[in-house]
């Protein structure tokens, strides 16, 4: 197959992930957010699969499958269940206006292009585009984490951040299998812990609003 096609497909998929990230920033309803998160992971799975195809690295298919299974299906499902169980159907309170956040997000994308493109000048163009966009996804995820107050949406934001990293890992050609497994594994554990914590938090505070947590800072003034 031609290098041009593989490049443009990979590029499109990575671009879609960035778009999904923006959509996540834009969403202000929790359930919708989780839907977008699922889409985000789905695109990631596609991107990883495409990389497996392009790089002729069969182990990446496994990663893609894990991503599809866990991140695109299991995780969103679990999160939805949490929302239902906790009764979180109200709107997300973002700290700043969506418009401003989207603007900042665009700035971040520009920054990541500015940082990554020159330094990857010698790398394979396939890798180059993906890693650059992956950085955008990571930064957008971080941005989302700091603009959301709700613990569930923060976790969702964190997961999108992880997706970005996965994208980068998949794009890094020939990166050993070890890493994918470890990534999946640790994310699994991470989710479990999050789940546990969310439940504990539910037990204790009747809410997953991080602000409620903050009332119990150890050293009150």
């Amino acid at each position: 197959m031609s290098g041009g096609l593989s490049l443009s497909v990979a590029n499109t998929l990575a671009g879609l992930m960035v778009l999904a990230s923006f959509l996540m920033i834009y969403q202000d309803r929790l359930s919708a957010l989780i839907n977008v998160l699922a889409a985000h992971a789905f695109v990631l799975a596609l991107a990883v699969a495409w990389q497996a195809h392009v790089q002729d690295a069969p182990e990446l298919y496994v990663t893609a499958a894990i991503t599809l299974g866990f991140k695109a299906m299991a995780l969103p499902m679990a999160l939805r269940r949490i929302i239902v169980r906790l009764g979180l159907h109200r709107e997300i309170e973002a700290v700043t206006g969506v418009g401003l956040t989207v603007l900042a997000g665009i700035g971040l994308v520009a920054l990541s292009l500015d940082v990554m493109l020159p330094v990857t000048a010698h790398a394979d163009p396939l890798t180059r585009e993906d890693v650059t966009l992956a950085l955008s996804v990571v930064l957008l995820g971080l941005l989302m984490m700091v603009t959301r107050r709700n613990a569930v949406s923060q976790v969702a934001a964190f997961l999108s951040l992880e997706n970005g990293i996965d994208l980068a890992a998949a794009a890094a050609q020939g990166m050993p299998m070890v890493v994918e497994i470890s990534v999946a594994f640790s994310l699994l554990v991470a989710f479990l812990v999050i789940g546990i914590f969310l439940f504990r938090i539910r037990e204790r505070f009747d809410s997953v609003d991080v602000r409620a947590l903050d009332a119990f800072r150890g050293e009150r003034r």
Binding site: A123, V138, L161, G164, M175
Partner: peptide
């Protein structure tokens, strides 16, 4: 740890 992983990938690259 996520940031560190990203850095690790970049080192590999």
């Amino acid at each position: 740890i996520a940031l560190a992983l990203f850095g690790t990938i970049l080192v590999y690259l």
